[in-house]
Design a protein around this nucleic acid. Structure first.
Lengths: 183, 183
DNA sequence: GTCACACTAGTCGGCGTTGAATACTCCACC
DNA sequence: GGTGGAGTATTCAACGCCGACTAGTGTGAC
């Protein structure tokens, strides 16, 4: 019983809690709900994740069908063990912050290998990129709220906005020295 | 020329820019400097990363020695290509935010599978954990500054503090409904 | 009617990560 | 003089991730 679930696996289990689905359908729903901004969704990873969930007895095949000549679609159903495992994993994630490792601190830490001018240029580009991303998230959020999507499903967006708003500090934290040329 | 470097690879290259070292020595230095709080340092990952760097011509073996009966130590040296690749990667990371996927938004998004009481309990635990972590980071930071470590090397800690301070919002964002029992 | 393009549905193979194991040294303590 | 724990230095195998590919279906434009 390994039962350490990946974020994608938890999302898949959560959707299967609504009704049985086939993997591709799960992917579509995740995208439609904008959850692909919270979890890294790669189709092959999803298929592997589903396989593991089945192997571990958290879900089971509920049917295989095919339309015309298209590939077979295997539909899966959530099992009790799967529901429990998902809830345990959510508790673990809420309970304590995990050590996660964003690359920005590393990049800032090694920025002294660059010239001050280079650092200033790329950080300016970054500020623009952040502003664009922020705007895009807001558009998505507003559109969803207008369509009546409950706020509960959009909490991820609120986090993202908080995170993006905290970012501009980076610009104010760049004590770099001029380039030394090594090997 | 794949040349997409992992964070650990960049840190290794950065240390090799100081002088040739063997992998274990790199690990020790990273720990000594507290950089293992910014990058995920697992010894086997480091060995693999070094192997790849050598294979890709970014570093080269500068010698193999052994003390007594201990395992051989292979020392590596930074090459020009490695230095350039590292700088390019740092620029990429500074230039634009990458989509990174912390688990907290996912957990909050699926928290409606739990009862309100459970959510409140685990979030309270989380707040304590965050406070403890914050305190520990401050201690490390102060100690380092006292020892004369330059602030540039401690920017990662400042980021961490900002991130931890933003966290308590989570508690104020928990519109959960009471438990529904599904399959 | 056919060509280009987008969508549906899934597989394959190589890359990177990591818990566990190995094996030896040094040192303290009893 | 032996046992146990911490540190040194590396390897192994299983796992998870993902770019690239396959292969069929619908669709609009010329």
């Amino acid at each position: 019983m390994p039962e350490r679930l990946t974020p994608l696996a938890v999302c898949a289990l959560a959707l299967l809690a609504e009704r049985p689905m086939h993997p591709y359908e799960i992917a579509q729903l995740l995208r439609a709900r904008g959850q692909d901004q919270d979890v890294k969704l790669r189709i092959p990873s999803l298929y592997h994740a589903i396989e593991r969930l089945e192997r571990d007895g958290l879900i089971e095949v509920s049917g295989v069908d095919r339309e015309g000549n298209r590939p077979e679609r295997t539909t899966y159903r959530l099992l009790k063990a799967g529901r429990d495992a998902m809830e345990r994993q959510v508790i673990v994630w809420l309970q304590a912050p995990r050590a996660e490792f964003p690359v920005l601190p590393v990049a800032v830490g090694e920025a002294h290998f660059l010239t001050r001018a280079e650092v200033e240029r790329v950080l300016a580009e970054r500020r623009d990129a952040v502003a664009r991303e922020r705007a895009a998230v807001r558009v998505f959020q507003e559109a969803a709220l207008d369509k009546g999507v409950p706020r509960r499903m959009l909490l991820g967006k609120e986090f993202t906005l908080h995170r993006l708003d905290a970012e501009p500090r980076v610009g104010r934290l760049s004590p770099v020295r001029s380039r030394e040329r090594g090997p």
